[in-house]
Amino acid sequence: MSTIVRPAPSDRDPSAELRGPVVERDTWFYLNIALSLVAALVVAGLLYSLVNPGPLYRFWFRTFHHDLPFDIPYFRHFFTLPQVWSGVRLTFILAILAQTTGIVLGLLAALMRTSRIAVFRAVSTLYIWVFRGTPVLLQIIIVSDGISILLLSMDPDLSGAGWVSHLAILIGSNAFAAGYLALSLNEGAYMSEIVRAGIVSIDRGQMEAAKALGMTYPLAMRRIVLPQALKVIIPPTGNEFISMLKTTSLVSVAGLQELTLVSEQTFAHSFKVLEVLVAAGVFYLAMTTVLTVVQAQIERRLGERRADVRRNPFENLRRLFLGSADLRHAAPAALPPKEAR
């Protein structure tokens, strides 16, 4: 049998190479456009009918007995109240501080959990067990009330200038400090599992190669393993950040004047329950949106080492709202959703 020699690509008819398959837009593409247009028209029409006279407006008018249940001017007014803005600021600052501390605590707990020293492993396991296994609301109340009670019983008249009474005054009288402490401790337990998952996802060969080059364990961890683990750690950490922003509302039980407590106080005066709560929701949504965009930016930076990354800033927004069918940009497999706290 003789060998068959095929012509190399360059020897073939070059025009044949250029005639690639024609990509046709399928039915779904046009259907999507049509349905989106219809949906946008319906939403716009409904909103328009609520404020402008017309047949639909008259229908609402009759249904709601001459008065809309949603006071749009008051809704707008809520956004101008100074106590609301200070509540927003407090919520945002508390979330960022508690989350940052939680990340540090989580890193520490994760390193302890993967340590060769048994006592470290035990302490870390116990910490995670307790703070992941009890409701965060309970933890906030225990920290804000329980600890100050405990400290007061050690120094009943708060006479001493020692550290006990200082701490009691700080935590007991300061809802922010108590909330910060409780949220950080709770978050650290969750973050430690995320960091640990990131560390164990890195191939053992990486640590071995680093050791064979004469690196010590801490150096190899810092320079080789953790930088790679970051890619696995960042997406669920973004989730945690968003979750933290909403969880700060629980610190209202400790009397912290954050967004939710301020909102409750506001509708207690005005009885505009729906307007106030929807407006508070808008604030929360705006804050979580900022965090989502920041997270997308960080992920993009981390992926930027690859040459094929798109640098279009609108791409992040598009992905945020429409998702991405492009697998190159898909987030790494997420951790299982954490149970309700």
């Binding site: 190669a209 064979a212 080059l213 004469g214 080492r305």
Partner: peptide
């Protein structure tokens, strides 16, 4: 170990560093 070089079956290069960064990492840090 710093006196003994080792080459692995699966290469075990550090994927977050360029070829040159891989080579200079240990001399600088160790």
């Amino acid at each position: 170990r710093a006196e003994i070089g080792m080459v692995f079956q699966r290469f075990n290069l550090f994927p977050h560093m360029t070829a040159l960064e891989n080579v200079i990492e240990a001399p600088i840090r160790v």
